[in-house]
Design a protein around this nucleic acid. Structure first.
Length: 838
RNA sequence: GCCGGGAUGGCGGAAUCGGUAGACGCAGUAGACUCAAAAUCUACCGCUGCAAGGCGUGCGGGUUCGAGUCCCGCUCCCGGCACCA
């Protein structure tokens, strides 16, 4: 209220809070004054706050608001704490939806180009982001479909090719018949394409891969990262490290057939072998009598979709190929089978089957009448039971294992011990030259080829003379041709674009063909945060100096759906870029926080078909951006999400109105209570303390609740004389400062109207005064035998004896005390007294 | 099956170095203002009971002066992985 006369305030108070007037006004002023412009070279402490950039779908939905608005508030908080905060935004602009729109238009005989569609959508969404009141610095915007950006995808790709990290290999891949492209393993959910939902087919195709498996072990190391436990676990599971041994089996004819096993201690129990149906040795080893049955099984398994192959409780199938192998540890002659429960893509594509100690092998042996030979028995038992009903995979003692008989073994508590059978057998195998220690991963290399148009062209050239050759750096970017025809069939138009297809060889200059596949769009998002630092740099993907100063990102926020895909690729890419010598850090994102999902009123996922979609534009129109922001933060813990409650935003709007009124309306005539100033100051400093802790902990819902509590206190205590006090002035400026990150427009407007100077958003975050939090007296509960029976008020510095005296003097307590003998007295100062009777 | 997370009023949720369960908000009830309604304001608002009291944080046990919080054994829900040798 400094310098503002009461008359002016009284006149203005007749104006009601109207976000429709004040929000656009401030958005424009902030932009004109450039208050969110970041100086990357400032010496203030740096804080890189990154939030996942969106795909330009054309319209912000509530999910976008839920991801961005609380993140924006957290970034604003961080800046008020004195940090130089970089909070950039961009668009993940390549991808199938825009191309699919072009294809459907083509089917109707219309022409729509993904590029123009994408840029229109970006322009619209950018406008919507501004209406949110977000403090994004748009001068650093990154748009991945811009050749200025994707040329660096190509540059990275060529660098990786040169170092053997990018390679082309023919293998069975996941083909999505609807989207007409292959997909990475990470994009296949329950046998279906993650976008189209179509059942994925297995196809043998030559494809480009990135060697993420080279980094498997390093990717398992999360030390120094403050990430949600579940994300780390999901990545760990996905990488799926298994320790064991490779053991050299041979066919009777002498063909080497290496197997991987995590239980080399069960080798003596291997009674047959199983090869994957695609295993290259099958056609060589199969006997003529078995050939027909075996070939028809292979044929069938090729046509079995992944989803059927993996379905739960499926009965084992397989065929004997007529050939035998030799178990190298006991020279037993064991039959060789093929079965689709053995995968060509894991381990060596061949297993030694130990039915006594592996449930899958056990089921297979049962079905086909194969020998079950127990070689490990639980400690205390001397031989394997002849009537096993299931495989025994626990710890125990080795039997029928030659020199190892009597050795304790298993994957249990002593598995790491050198005396454990597993370790001893591996050491012995290495001595004998029969095998070696081996680590295997579930993780496969990242398949990045996509048979689509709207993505980064893979910058490779096929020359009859020179083979597969990367495009020269000076010729990058290999630009996507604009004048292409979108096929109603969905086939990539690049395959039919002569001027693109025909090129000259970068090596010999002769006629050559371009690769027509484009890159997975996750390539784009694997390094985009580096580009924000120097979005228009010409000579390099990013400014090395700035990257060394500004990365790793301090705080990254986004949806949990990227727990594996994007976040794993981004970590891989960072390690690759580090190995190129471009950055020092091993990890991209130090701290990660995931927001949950906003559901419809009916607690279901929002969808047009359910009719439960809430449109943020409508909400802004009715309640204002500040109310939407505050309500989304208030709805519940951010990482949990929750259902949208249309009444909830009305409650928050009431709160904002009360803040408006308590600041601007003249006080009613009312006598000031003796302790009002102390009470107000206590409420103010408690709010500072709590809201600060809540922002640090990402507990936005309780931060809003604390601010409501402060407003309630101000409204309750407000009186004409109190309004003249320093305590009141402090209360007004404090509530506006604490609200500034959450409701930037309202806070700015009231900041100005209550006579403050420069923007509230350029002010420092308040610091609480611990001494303001204490009061002269405190209320304590008095329990008798653990049940609360009375409340007493005592001096805050009372001794235990004094507290007990007061407690026992209470009439109700005295009545209980009369009923028994007091045997114990417990006093927790400031909290409670517990009187225990016998 | 394995791994993780969760279960608190009519609803969203708060409180976990063990210390007054239900902050804050929604919904609801009563009242004030109004011709009336809306808005706003005031009071009440876990269940049960006239009251005193009793009961109460998914279920069953346990530890403790005291348990939503710790321990043991379950149930259900959500998420991830899954014929990975």
């Amino acid at each position: 209220m400094t310098e503002t006369s009461e008359a002016v305030i009284a006149a203005e108070a007749r104006e009601r809070y109207n976000p429709r007037d004040i929000e656009p006004k401030w958005q424009q002023r902030w932009q004109e004054q450039g208050i969110y412009r970041v100086d990357l070279n400032s010496e203030r402490p740096r804080f890189y706050f990154l939030t996942m950039y969106p795909y330009p779908s054309g319209n912000l939905h509530v999910g976008h608001w839920y991801a961005e608005a609380p993140a924006d508030a957290a970034a604003r908080y961080r800046r008020m704490r004195g940090y130089n905060v970089l909070f950039p935004m961009g668009f993940d602009a390549f991808g199938l939806p825009a191309e699919n729109a072009a294809i459907s238009a083509a089917r109707e005989g219309r022409e729509v180009h993904p590029a123009s569609l994408t840029y229109e959508r970006i322009a619209y969404m950018e406008k919507q982001f501004r209406q949110m009141g977000a403090m994004f610095d748009w001068s650093t915007k990154v748009v991945t479909c811009d050749p200025e950006y994707y040329r660096w995808n190509q540059w990275f790709f060529v660098k990786m090719f040169e170092r053997g990290l990018a390679y082309r290999k023919e293998s069975y891949v996941n083909w999505d018949p609807v989207d007409q492209t292959v997909l990475a393993n990470e994009q296949v959910i329950d046998g279906r394409g993650d976008r189209s939902g179509a059942l994925v087919e297995r196809r043998l195709m030559p494809q480009w891969h990135l060697k993420i498996t080279d980094y498997a072990d390093e990717l398992l190391d999360f030390s120094g990262l403050d990430w949600p436990e579940r994300v780390k676990l999901m990545q760990t599971n996905w990488i799926g490290r298994s320790e064991g041994a490779e053991v050299a089996f041979r066919s009777e004819q002498g063909d080497p057939m290496t197997v991987f096993t995590t239980r080399p201690d069960t080798l003596w129990g291997a009674t047959f072998m199983v090869l994957a149906p695609e295993h290259p040795l099958v056609s060589k080893l199969v006997t003529s009598e078995r050939r027909q049955a075996v070939e028809s099984y292979i044929e069938r398994s090729e046509h079995t979709s992944e989803i059927d192959r993996q379905s739960e409780g499926r009965e084992k199938t397989g065929e004997f190929i007529g050939a035998y192998a030799v178990n190298p540890v006991n020279d037993h002659r064991i039959p060789i089978w093929i079965a689709d429960y053995v995968l060509m893509t894991y381990g060596t594509g061949a297993i030694m089957a130990v039915p006594a100690h592996d449930q899958r092998d056990f089921e297979f042996a049962r079905k086909f009448g194969l020998e079950v030979a127990p070689v490990i028995v639980p400690e205390g038992q001397d031989r394997g039971g002849a009537t096993m009903s299931e495989a025994y995979s626990g710890d125990g003692v080795m039997i029928r294992s030659g020199r190892f008989d009597g050795t304790r073994t298993g994957k249990g508590a002593n598995a790491a011990d050198d005396e454990n059978g597993i370790a001893r057998v591996i050491a012995w195998l290495e001595e004998q030259g029969l095998g070696s220690r081996k680590v295997t991963y579930r993780l496969r290399d990242w398949l990045i080829s996509r048979q689509r148009y709207w993505g980064t062209p893979i910058p490779m050239v096929y020359c009859d003379a020179c083979g597969v050759v990367p495009e020269r750096e000076e010729n990058l970017p290999v630009e996507l041709p604009h004048d292409v025809a979108f096929m109603p069939t969905g086939e990539s138009p690049l395959k039919h674009h002569k001027p693109f297809l025909d090129t000259s060889c970068p090596e010999c200059g002769g006629a050559a063909r371009r690769e027509t596949d484009t890159m997975d769009t996750f390539m784009d998002s694997s390094w985009y945060w580096f580009r924000y630092l120097s979005p228009h740099l010409k000579g390099a993907p990013f400014d090395e100096e700035l990257a060394k100063r500004w990365t790793p990102v301090n705080l990254y926020t986004g949806g949990i759906e990227h727990a594996i895909l994007h976040l794993l690729y981004a970590r891989f890419f960072t390690k690759v870029v580090r190995d190129f010598g471009l950055v020092d850090s091993d990890e991209p994102f130090l701290r990660l926080r995931n927001q949950g999902m906003i559901l419809g009123e009916d607690n279901e996922k929002m969808s047009k078909s359910r009719g439960n979609v809430v449109d943020p534009d409508d909400l802004v129109e009715s309640y204002g951006a500040d109310a939407v922001r505050a309500y989304l933060m208030f709805i519940g813990p951010w990482d949990q999400g929750g259902p949208w409650n249309p009444k909830g935003i009305e409650g928050v709007t009431r709160f904002l109105n009360r803040v408006w009124n308590v600041v601007l309306e003249p006080a009613e005539e009312r006598d000031e209570g003796a302790d009002d100033r102390g009470d107000l100051r206590r409420a103010v400093h408690l709010a500072i303390k709590e809201v600060t802790e809540d922002f640090e902990a990402f507990s936005f819902n309780t931060a809003v609740a604390e601010l409501m509590t402060l407003q309630n206190a101000m409204t309750r205590l407000k009186s004409r004389s109190l309004c003249q006090s320093a305590e009141w002035t402090e209360a007004v400026s404090t509530i506006l400062l604490l609200l500034a990150p959450i409701t930037p427009h309202l806070s700015e407007e009231l900041w100005e109207r209550s006579g403050h100077g420069e923007s509230v958003h350029l002010r420092s975050w308040p610091v609480h005064d611990e001494t303001a939090l204490t009061s002269a007296t405190v209320q304590m509960a008095v329990q008798v035998n653990g049940k609360v029976r009375a409340q007493v008020t005592v001096a805050v510095d009372a001794t235990k004896d004094q507290i007990l005296d007061v407690a026992k003097a209470d009439r109700k307590v005295a009545r209980y005390l009369a009923e028994g003998e007091l045997v114990r007295e417990i006093v927790v100062p400031g909290r409670l007294v517990n009187l225990v009777l016998k």
